[in-house]
Design a binder for these strands. Structure first.
Length: 242
DNA sequence: GCGACAG
DNA sequence: ATCTTGTCGC
C-alpha cells in the first residue's frame, strides 16, 4: 500500500476541487446559473505580485467539428514561456452571446488541469464582468479555479463608452447601467481598442495594470497572442492528419 | 417590434 | 470562431 505524506495528501485533495455545477445545462439553466454564480465573484485588488501568469484561447475547426483549447504559462515579469498544455474535444454547447463560458470553460479547465505549475493569475480571451449578468468567461474560469482572472476581449459584448484617443495607452471607461465594468484600451496606436474587465479576485485597476505590462508591439497582449498562435498551430497540425 | 450580440 | 483573395504598408 502506498503511503503519502499528510501534507501531500491534502494537496492532492484540494486539487480535486469538485465542479461548482453541472455543465450539462440548457441555455435557460445556464442563465440562471450565471445569476447565482455572479454573487460569488469577488472584485478586489490583485494581491501579491504574480510569479506566473497564464493565458487561454480556443481555436475551432469548421471541417472536423473539434475545438482546440490551450493554456500557456509565463514567468512574471519577463514573460518567458514555461508550459503549454491543451485539450482537444468536440464542443458540447452552442455559441450563444452571453453564454460563451458554457461552451469554452469545460475544455479550458481540462487543459488547465494538465499544467504542472499553476499560474497565479489567468488572462482570458473574453469578457469578465463586462457582461449582461456580470459573469463573463473570465469570471467563470476564475471562480472554478479559485484564481484571479482578467478578461481581455477583442470586441464589445455590452455596455457603452467613448472612443479612446488614437494614441497607444489611451483609454475610456466602459459603463453598464451606470456602473463602470471595464476599460476600453487603445493597446496599439491607430487600431481598434481592446476591452479589459476583471474576472475574479481582481479589480479594474489591477486588471489594467496587468494587461499594460503584457503589451508589446501588437494589439493583443503577448500571453494571449501566444495562446492564440499555439491553439491555431495545434488545429492545423491535427487537421493535417485527418 | 427592431437592433446588438465575447468566441 | 472559421472560410477566403487580394491588397496596403512596414
Amino acid at each position: 500500500m502506498h503511503r503519502l505524506p499528510l501534507v501531500r495528501f491534502f494537496e492532492v485533495c484540494v486539487d480535486l476541487n469538485p465542479e461548482l455545477h453541472s455543465w450539462s445545462v440548457t441555455p435557460k439553466e445556464a442563465v440562471a446559473l450565471q445569476r447565482s454564480l455572479a454573487a460569488q465573484v469577488r472584485i478586489e485588488p490583485l494581491g501579491l505580485r504574480p510569479r506566473i501568469v497564464g493565458a487561454e484561447d480556443i481555436s475551432y475547426s469548421r471541417r472536423s467539428d473539434l475545438l482546440f483549447a490551450v493554456v500557456v504559462t509565463f514567468k512574471w515579469p519577463g514573460l518567458d514561456p514555461i508550459e503549454t498544455v491543451n485539450h482537444v474535444c468536440k464542443a458540447s454547447f452552442p455559441y450563444v452571446p452571453g453564454l460563451l463560458s458554457f461552451r469554452e470553460a469545460p475544455p479550458i479547465l481540462e487543459a488547465f488541469s494538465k499544467l504542472r505549475q499553476k499560474p497565479d493569475v489567468l488572462l482570458c480571451d473574453a469578457q469578465g464582468i463586462a457582461h449582461p449578468r456580470r459573469f463573463g468567461l473570465a469570471c467563470h474560469l476564475g471562480l472554478c479555479l479559485g484564481l484571479p482572472s482578467v478578461g481581455c476581449a477583442k470586441s464589445r459584448l455590452c455596455g457603452s463608452h467613448a472612443d479612446p484617443l488614437m494614441k497607444k495607452g489611451s483609454s475610456k471607461p466602459l459603463f453598464l447601467n451606470g456602473e463602470q465594468v471595464g476599460i476600453v484600451l487603445r493597446s496599439k496606436e491607430g487600431v481598434k481598442p481592446i476591452y479589459i474587465s476583471p474576472g475574479h479576485l481582481c479589480d479594474l485597476k489591477s486588471s489594467r495594470k496587468l494587461v499594460d505590462r503584457c503589451l508589446g508591439r501588437y494589439r493583443i497582449p503577448e500571453p494571449l497572442r501566444r495562446a492564440h498562435s499555439e491553439a491555431n498551430r495545434l488545429r492545423v497540425e491535427i487537421e493535417s492528419v485527418l
